[in-house]
Structure formats: structure tokens, C-alpha cells
Design a protein around this nucleic acid. Structure first.
Lengths: 214, 214
DNA sequence: GTCTATACGTTGATAGAC
DNA sequence: GTCTATCAACGTATAGAC
């Protein structure tokens, strides 16, 4: 990856670190090479069925070099999770437009979530695998709550303003997240045009809104 | 496990094979010992982080004995998945009551799903892990569709009778399944009385119905 | 059917030269 | 920082006695 186009540049720089944009035109950091390769292999074969030796090899470096950047395999797996989770959250925060209408804000929150997931399918699948794995217990409650803080804020406002049904915050939060996962699962298995896909996303938001709004 | 109580008996006989009920009062089949132990360990540590030697040991048998019942570890994992998936489907089929009202049928379908999942938390978590893993590709499309046939039938009827919104069947199916997973996730993380839990299940069905019905 | 013993490959991680 | 060489431990699966 020596040269990349503008559109790819935006996506990739989004996944990784904005401060390292300039390096992208020449070479990614070794650390990022590892993370990128590990993601592909983990999604293809699972954490434990993917040896560190294979990651290093496919990332074009020696076995020992990988352990220079990550002390253990576990550290690598957890770093990979937080890397993408942070990216996901950052994307949603910058793409959820502020608006007088709460419904519009929910809509843009919803669309940006779906869009990120769609542009980062592997990352999202890995994050789901991770969430169900024993590694997840090493992620603090505080971190998890922080990631969902924007959604919780919106929900709180919605309930206060009597736009949303008066239900436990946690329940609403969980149902919305499940809904988003479901839409993603549908969009991934069906083979459709971008246009049709957008229509489904729009429809799905209406469904979600019918469910949670008064 | 020499003697078990009636309630446990019902749950366990439900998980495994009805034709082997009589054996339960003395000893489970070795094969079922393996499956039961493997489930616990897989949920605790994941497929690959759980060695077959540990499964055999905890199931109270020699390493070689395990391989007498399952030729490979992969075969064991896949058998474990279908075992529980079959049980889940069977439970829903017998517990979804026939009724003139489609809404009532949906409600009982929904409740039985939630109830089974709640009584078989480990099994369900394993099934989700499995679904996201590379092993899932070994499960045929036909098998998957067959498992969801009751829901699809209900949905078809609902759309024909203009009770449900006219949306792609697959989309509805996926959204309902995600909703159920979400409710389960909420019920699992919160600590509540059976009474309160039932109330949430009831409310959640209303939400689902608001979403999919006209 | 069940056990013991073991073959044989693989893996995570380290040491030390460059 | 990166590589090569290496190791000790482990994991799947088999062979063969009982």
C-alpha cells in the first residue's frame, strides 16, 4: 500500500490514528500493520486458531517483532478491540448532527452507526466475537458506558421531553443496539444495490421509531 | 448426578434426548456427559482455549474415550451446536400455542423463545459464539431455514392478513430475532425478580408488536 | 468401550546478534 | 527496532492393552 485514493484515505485514516495521516502515503506503522493483519485473520479463523506466527508472517515481519509491539497475544487482542471500538464511537460522535428535533438526531445517530458498520464489516464482526468471548471481562464497565454515552444522553432527553416511551434506559439502549445489529445482519446477507440498501436503512429507522416513540 | 428433582429433570431431559429419559435417573450417556461438560468449558473459555483433554478430564473419563464418541474436536463442536439448536426449535414448536389471533400466536412464540433462552443461558451463549465463528459455515442454509420455519410461517400469514407491515420476510425475521437477543441480553445483565422479569418480557412484546404491526 | 501411553505438530514467548 | 534461532509447553489424535 504505497499510494491510496482519497476515498480510501478517508476510510483508513478513520480506522486508525488521525495523527499519523502523513505516514499513510508511505507505510503504515508496524503496529498498525499487525492490527490490520490480525483483524483479517481473527475474523477468518478466530482468536485462538490464529497463531501469532501467522500474523507476523502475513504482516511481513519476523515473529519476534510482533512481541516487541505487543507483550502478549492477549494484549494484542484487547488493543484491537479498543482500537475499533474507539473508532466506531468517534465516528458516531462526529456524524450525529445536532438538531432541534430529537427524532432527526436519533436518525443521524442510527444512520452513522449503520454506515460505520457497513464500511467496517470485519471490525464489527470481530467486536461482536470479542464481546461474547471471555476476553470481554477485561473491559471495564466505565469504558463500556462511556462508549454508549451519546445514545444514553439522547434517550434521557427523549424520555424527559415525552417523545419516547417511559422505559428503563438500559432496556431502550440494548434494544436499539440489537436493532442496529439486526439491520446489519440483514444488509450483509442480502445482495442489494446501494440505493435499495439506503431505502432499507430508512425503513428500518421508521420501524425503530415506531417501537420506541410515544 | 444420581438423583435429580422433577424440575431439573424437565430441564435436562429437554436439553437432551427424550428417548433417553430413563437413563437420567442413573447416569447420563457418556456422549451426553461430554456435550454437557464441553458446553460449560466452551462458554467459560471459548472453543480453542478449551483443550479436549480438559473436557475429558472434567467429564470424568480418559482422553481417548472422548475421541471414541467424536472423531474430531470440530465434530464435537458442531454436534453441540445442532443438539441445542434442535432443542430450542423443538421447544418453541411445542410451546407456541395455536390460536385464532395471530397476535396471540406471536406472543406465545416470543415468550417461549425468551423462556428457553432464560433456562438455557449457557447453551444460548454458545450458540451465539458458534454463529459468529468460522464453524458456522459448515451449517447448511437448509438447516438454518428449517429452524426458523415457524416464525417465517407466522410472518407470512401476518402479512397476507394485513396485520403486519408489508416488509421483506427476511428483514422481519432478522429484526425479531435481534429483538429477542436484545431482551435476553437486558434480562441477563439486570438483576431482577421473576415477577419484574415477566413484566419486562410482556412490555418488550408490546414494543416488538408496535414495530412490526400495522 | 475404556484406559494408558505416546507420537507429532504447533504455539506463545524469549534470548541475543545485528 | 528487527531479525534468527530456539525452547518448553501444550494440544489433537492414535495405537494398542485390557
Amino acid at each position: 500500500m504505497i499510494k491510496i485514493f482519497h476515498s480510501e484515505f478517508l476510510i483508513i485514516s478513520n480506522i486508525f490514528n488521525y495523527s499519523k495521516i502523513t505516514k499513510l502515503f508511505f507505510d503504515l506503522d508496524k503496529k498498525e500493520d499487525i492490527l490490520k493483519t490480525a483483524l483479517d485473520l481473527f475474523v477468518k479463523s478466530g482468536f485462538h486458531a490464529t497463531p501469532t506466527s501467522k500474523i507476523a508472517k502475513e504482516a511481513g515481519m519476523a515473529n519476534g517483532t510482533l512481541f516487541h509491539y505487543f507483550k502478549t497475544k492477549e494484549e494484542l487482542i484487547i488493543a484491537l478491540y479498543t482500537e475499533h471500538q474507539n473508532c466506531f464511537t468517534a465516528f458516531i460522535h462526529t456524524n450525529t448532527i445536532s438538531d432541534e428535533s430529537l427524532k432527526h438526531m436519533f436518525h443521524s445517530f442510527f444512520s452513522s452507526s449503520i454506515n460505520w458498520i457497513n464500511d467496517n464489516k470485519s471490525a464489527f464482526q470481530f467486536m461482536q466475537q470479542f464481546t461474547l468471548s471471555p476476553f470481554y471481562q477485561f473491559i471495564s464497565k466505565e469504558y463500556i458506558n462511556k462508549q454508549d454515552s451519546l445514545l444514553v444522553e439522547l434517550l434521557q432527553k427523549g424520555i424527559e421531553e415525552e417523545i419516547l416511551k417511559k422505559l428503563p434506559l438500559e432496556l431502550l439502549r440494548t434494544l436499539i443496539n440489537s436493532h442496529i445489529i439486526g439491520i446489519n445482519s440483514y444488509l450483509s446477507t442480502q445482495d442489494m444495490s446501494a440505493e435499495h440498501s439506503n431505502m432499507i436503512i430508512h425503513q428500518s429507522f421508521s420501524l425503530l421509531w415506531d417501537m420506541i416513540s410515544l
